[in-house]
Design a protein around this nucleic acid. Sequence first.
DNA 1: AACGTTTAACTAAACGTTTCGCTGGCGCCG
DNA 2: CGGCGCCAGCGAAACGTTTAGTTAAACGTT
Lengths: 368, 368
Amino acid sequence: MSATIKDVAERAGVSIATVSNVVNGSRFVSGDLAEKVHHAIKELGYQPNPLGRALRKGRSYTIALILPDHSNPFFVQVARGVDEQARRREYGLITCNTDEDPDLETFYVSSLLKRKVDGFVVAPTHRGAETLKPLIEHGAPLVVVDRCIAGMKVDEVFSDNEGGAYEATAYLVGLGHRSIGLIAGIPGISSIEDRVAGYRRALIEHDLPVDESLMAQGCSQIKEGASSAEVLLGKRGITAIFSTNNMMTLGALQCFKKLGVRCPDDVSLIGFDDSEWASAFTPSLTVVAQQAYEMGYSAGDLLFEAIGRGKETHSTRAIKLQTVLIPRESTARPPALRGKKEVHRATSSGGKNKPSASAKSGTRRSPR
Amino acid sequence: MSATIKDVAERAGVSIATVSNVVNGSRFVSGDLAEKVHHAIKELGYQPNPLGRALRKGRSYTIALILPDHSNPFFVQVARGVDEQARRREYGLITCNTDEDPDLETFYVSSLLKRKVDGFVVAPTHRGAETLKPLIEHGAPLVVVDRCIAGMKVDEVFSDNEGGAYEATAYLVGLGHRSIGLIAGIPGISSIEDRVAGYRRALIEHDLPVDESLMAQGCSQIKEGASSAEVLLGKRGITAIFSTNNMMTLGALQCFKKLGVRCPDDVSLIGFDDSEWASAFTPSLTVVAQQAYEMGYSAGDLLFEAIGRGKETHSTRAIKLQTVLIPRESTARPPALRGKKEVHRATSSGGKNKPSASAKSGTRRSPR
DNA sequence: AACGTTTAACTAAACGTTTCGCTGGCGCCG
DNA sequence: CGGCGCCAGCGAAACGTTTAGTTAAACGTT
C-alpha cells in the first residue's frame, strides 16, 4: 500500500524518530539529514497515516457537527461556516442530522464519543441539556450554536433572537397592524422562546394587548407551520403573522395558498431566517435574517480554541450575533388602512436590546 | 480515561485475546469465560477503541460522501439516504461539499484517502473523471451518484434523466406549446446532458423544430438560472421554459418576478427535482421529481457491498431510478390557446425510454 | 500406554505513529 | 589531558487493537 514512516527512514538512512521529528518539527534535525528525509518523502510520496498518529496522540483530528435539520437552509449555512474552519485546519468533519429527535441526538453523541472525536458543535434538540450531559461529563470540547441550554456552562454562539423578533413585530406595528399572530416553533428551545419574548415585548411597549390565542405553537416543520397558520387565520381581525422559523414560514405560505388568502393584501407575513428562495417567492418574503454562516464560523473558532487549550478549564464564552430586518413584499399596511398615510415610522433599530452578560458581537462576514 | 481491553482482561482474569474473541465472536470461547468477560465489560463500561481497531485492521469504519451543493434540496435528500445506510451499519460518515469546484473535489479526495476512509459516494463535478482518478487507481470502493463519468467502470446510481426530460417536454407540447425554451445546467455533466437529450428527442418526435437559440446554458446556480431565463424571455414567441435544475428554476422565478412576467399566464415553467418549497410557491411548481432519498440509499447499498467484497474485482453495476412528473400550477396552455379545447393529451408515461446496458429499477421508498 | 487430534486459551507480533530517555561524539574549560 | 555539558540522532516503549501461531489439556483410537 502506501509508504510508511519506516520506508522513509530506510530510504533516507536515518531512524524512524528522525523522520518523525522532521515531519512534525518536534525536535531539531540538522539541515543535512532533514534534506535527505525530505527527499525520501517526496520520492516515496509518503503521507503520515492519521490512524497511527491518532492512536498514539489520543486524538482523531476530527470534529463533529450535530444539527437538527439539514433541510433548513439556515443550518446548511451554519454547516458551511463550521466546514470552512475544519478544512482550514485539515480536520475532518462528521456532520449529523438529528431531525429534532433527542434520541437520535443521544445516539450520535455516544457514537461520536466512542470514535474519540476531538470536539463538538451542536444545535441541541429540546432535550439538549440531557442529551449533551455525557459530553460535558466527559469533558469533550463543546460549542453550542443557535440554541442555548439552561444551567450549563458551555461556549455558545447564537443570534439576538429577542431583538430580532422585537424588530420584526415593531415593524408590523409601524405599518399599522394591531392584531398580529405568532407562529412559534418547538417549545423548550431558547431561540424560539427568545423570539416569542421579543414579540411580547414589542406588543407591550407599543401598548397593544398580548393575546395568547394569537400565539400558535408547533414543532418547527412545514406541516406544523401550515396548521398553525390555519388556526391563526381563523381568528377574526388578524392582519399580520410573524413566523419564528424558516420551515414554518414555508408552511404558512402553503396554507395561504390553500385557503386563497392573499399576501400581503389580506394578511402580512414576516419570517425569521433569510434564504435564497425567500426572495424568489411571490410575494418575496420580508424576513429577519440571521448571520448563519458567521454563526458556524465563530463556533469553529471557539471550538478549536478549546481544543488547543486541552484539558485546562476556562471561563465559557458567549457570542451574540446581530440580526437584520429585510423588508420585501410580503408585508404591507393592513387592508383597513390601505391607501391612507402611514401612522408613524416605527422600528428604529430593534429597540433596546436586553444587555447580555458576556456578549461580543461578531463582525466577520460570509465569504460569498 | 476510558477502559481498555487490557483492563477488561485483567478484571476478568483472562488474556487480551480472549476478550477480543468474545467481543468480535472471532473464535469460540467457553460459556464460562465468556460470561466473566461480559461481566467485566459491563462493570468497566468498556467500549472498544475504534482507533486501535482501525490501525490494526487497516480500515476506519468511515465512509465519505462528496456532493456538489448542500444548498440544493435534492442533494440533501441524497445525503439522508446515505446517512441512513451508514448509521445502520455503525459507520461514520464524512460529508463534503465541493460547491461544484473540481479543485475542492480533488482536495477532498486526497484528504479522505489519507484518512483511510473505507469508501466513497460521489456526485462528481464536471471534471469528475480526472478528480476521481486517484480514487480508482487506489482501488477504493466507489459509487457515483446522479452523474455518470465517461469511460470509467464504476458502480453508479442515477435517475432516468433522459426519460424524465422527455416527459416534461412532451407534457408542455401536449398543452399546446410550440416554442419551448430550455435552461441547461453545467455542461459536461451527464445528468444535465441527458436531460437536454430528452428535451431534444421530445421535440423531434413531436415534429417541432430544435432551435439552438432557445437553449441557454449556465452553471447550476440561482443567478445563472435568472440570467438564462432573461435571455430566453427575450426570444419572441416563447411560451414555456423547461429548467433542468432545481437551483436554476429558482433563478428563473426570480427573473419572472423582476421582469413582471406572469407564470403560467405569460409563460409556463417546469422544473427538474421536486422539493418541499416547490409546492409552496405561487404558482406552485410543476416538476419532474427524482427519487433522491432512494438514490442515496441505493448508493449506500452498493458501496457497502463493495466494501464487504474487499479487493476482489467485480463487474460494476448501474441502477437507474424512474422519475415522475408532478403537474402543478406553473404550467398551463399557452396564451393563444387559452380557453380553447386541448389539442391532445400527450405524455403517456415518458415515451420510449432508451434501453440501458445493465439497468435495474429501484423500488424502495423514502421512510417519511 | 502411547500416540494423534481436537479443543480452548494464551503469547506475542504486528498496525504506524510519537516521544522519552539514552548514547556517543564533540568542543570547552580548567 | 580529563571531566563536563551539549548536541544530534537513535532505540524502544508506548497507544489499543486483531490474529496467527503456540501450548497444554482432554479425549479417542489403536
